[in-house]
Computed example of a mutant assay.
Amino acid sequence: MARNDPIYKLVYFDLRGLAETARYIFAYAAVEYEDYRVKREEWPYQKDATPFRTLPYLEVDGDVIGQSNAICRFLAHRFNLAGHDDLQQARVDALVDYVNDVRTGGLIGWIREEDKEQKEKLKAEFFNKTVDVYLATFEKHLKANVDGNREYFVGNAPTWADFHIAILMGMLQEGEANVLAKYPLLKAHKARVDNLKGITDWIAKRPKTAM
């Protein structure tokens, strides 16, 4: 890193979770940053010092940005991963918002459930009744991107929406290995993102965590 380049510090728990898309952006852009991981026992004492009493947050030369999507959007604009014009950027943002719909529409519920019996019930309901609607919608959007030959969701080059969606697909596959069997475009898209320069190296070296 050159002396005058910005100094980035990404702060999150020792998880992939809400910080992983930002890590993909850094990896793809080949930009150095500090991947600081807060220990669970330390978090209660640090919470009040964060912008929104949440993680992750990003320090940029001492300035602090909170909220995971705001962090990713900032980095994506800085590293040319937000879309080439305002219409593409709106499409990227809409896809990212839809990932949040999936998370709040049942995914996080079963992941966070602690009761084993209830956890299995919620998981079965999500994968048997809910997830196909979301996956079919994602596949529809990918299929509609004829300008990008259906390789990426918006335009003909990766955006941070591609990273965000590929990470979500990975989470789903951890819950049900064959979840993408009926969605060949999504399955190929995830493999394409995972094999992008920088990202494939990050996946190989990143800490092994539960989520």
Rank of each mutant, 00 (worst) to 15 (best):
P207T: 02
G66C: 12
G155H: 04
Y98S: 02
K190W: 00
V11M: 04
A161L: 12
W202E: 08
K39S: 07
L172M: 08
Y134C: 07
L180H: 05
I165P: 06
Q46A: 07
G155T: 03
Q88W: 00
K9D: 11
L87T: 14
T130F: 04
N178V: 00
G17M: 09
A94F: 10
I165Q: 01
D14V: 08
H77T: 14
R192K: 12
K123M: 08
D97A: 07
K47T: 06
M1E: 05
V99T: 05
Q46V: 08
L172P: 06
A22C: 10
E32K: 12
Q88C: 05
I199R: 00
L107P: 07
L168Y: 11
T200C: 07
V131H: 01
W202P: 08
V179C: 03
L15H: 09
L180G: 13
G106H: 02
D115W: 06
K182Q: 15
E176W: 04
D162T: 13
M211E: 01
A22R: 02
E59N: 04
A76M: 02
K123F: 13
E151I: 11
D97T: 05
D63F: 15
P184H: 12
L55E: 11
A188S: 15
V96C: 06
L95D: 04
M169C: 11
K190L: 07
K121Q: 14
R103S: 03
V92G: 11
I108V: 13
L172I: 08
K208A: 15
G105W: 01
E32N: 15
A29L: 03
R192V: 11
Y28G: 05
P56G: 12
I7Q: 13
D93A: 06
Y12T: 05
D162E: 08
I7W: 06
I25F: 04
V179I: 12
R206I: 00
H77M: 14
L55N: 09
A19L: 02
N195M: 03
N69E: 13
